[in-house]
């Protein structure tokens, strides 16, 4: 029995297919988000990967910013619940989940059972999110993928503010004009993201295991900056970008089970 989770973000679309509510048999991410062909492509590729067709899917759930626009399912669960569920499934001891996606950053505090207890999201500005890093990568002419390696070469991280993407962008341009080294600017950018997220985390509080999901978790520079700010190691889920879609597939499995129980 297969269930499908679709996570439609602002910048990318992800799909996970789960066998028997336990074993992921496919996971795909497409760099095109809500309003594009991304969601459809992600689902098609996941079905191909699992060698299945849509009729093999017993239940599906959509999550993410574009969850209400998804034509493949009529059930939506918020990204807070889905990310928490996806992370908890893979890292059951996690008590704080940090998820940095395309346009928002979330911190989710979990209780002893791994259920969502409290959560916070960034305010309207894109500071501290994937979009912020994208803007900076464009200004610096360094791809997102390379930013982690540059971070490691920094000896003196530059000061980059964390309140506003537009201000931070002009600061980075000034730093470049002043001849600052790119590794130092990048380490400063990562620290700026970490400070922003740490501000959110301190509002919900943390004491135990911290886990991170979302595409930005693949940037080791951000992870290291966050670890430095929080003073604790951070565990990364195996495929951080797919955590939300995995959570959605788990919710779809619940839905399938409760339907079968009630005979509905």
């Amino acid at each position: 029995m297969y269930t499908l989770g679709i996570d439609i973000g602002s910048a990318s679309s992800k799909a996970v297919i789960l066998a028997d509510g336990l074993r992921p048999v496919a996971g795909q991410a497409i760099q095109a988000g809500t309003g594009s062909s991304g969601p459809k492509q992600a689902v098609e590729r996941a079905l191909d990967e699992a060698k299945l067709t849509l009729s093999d899917i017993a239940a599906s759930v959509a999550t993410g910013y574009g969850r209400f626009t998804c034509e493949l399912t009529d059930r939506q669960v918020s990204e807070i619940s889905c990310h928490a569920r996806g992370v908890s499934h893979q890292l059951p001891s996690a008590r704080l989940v940090i998820d940095i996606g395309g346009q928002d950053a979330k911190v989710i505090r979990l209780d002893a059972q791994g259920a969502v207890w409290q959560f916070l999201m960034n305010e309207k500005c894109a500071a501290g999110t994937g979009r912020f890093l994208e803007v900076m990568s464009r200004v610096l002419e360094i791809s997102l993928r390379e930013m982690g390696a540059y971070h490691d070469r920094s000896s003196r991280p530059a000061a980059v503010s964390s309140t506003c993407t537009v201000f931070a962008e002009s600061e980075v341009i000034s730093l470049l004009a002043a001849g600052a080294a790119k590794p130092d600017i990048i380490a400063g950018i990562h620290r700026s993201v970490a400070v922003k997220v740490c501000g959110l985390a301190s509002r919900v509080g943390w004491e135990d295991d911290i886990a991170m999901s979302g595409g930005v978790a693949r940037n080791q520079g951000v992870v290291k900056a966050l670890e430095a700010e929080l003073g604790r190691p951070i565990k990364i889920t195996p495929e951080p970008q797919l955590a939300g879609a995995l959570g959605a597939a788990l919710y779809a499995f619940d839905q399938y089970q409760s339907k079968n129980k009630t005979g509905g």
């Binding site: 990204e79 619940s81 259920a115 207890w117």
Partner: peptide
């Protein structure tokens, strides 16, 4: 209201899950 929508939906999900538990 998209951000508020996510917050409110998540909160409702938390409350429902607690009630079910």
């Amino acid at each position: 209201v998209e951000q508020i929508r996510t917050r409110i939906q998540s909160f409702a999900e938390i409350l429902r899950a607690q009630r079910a538990r």
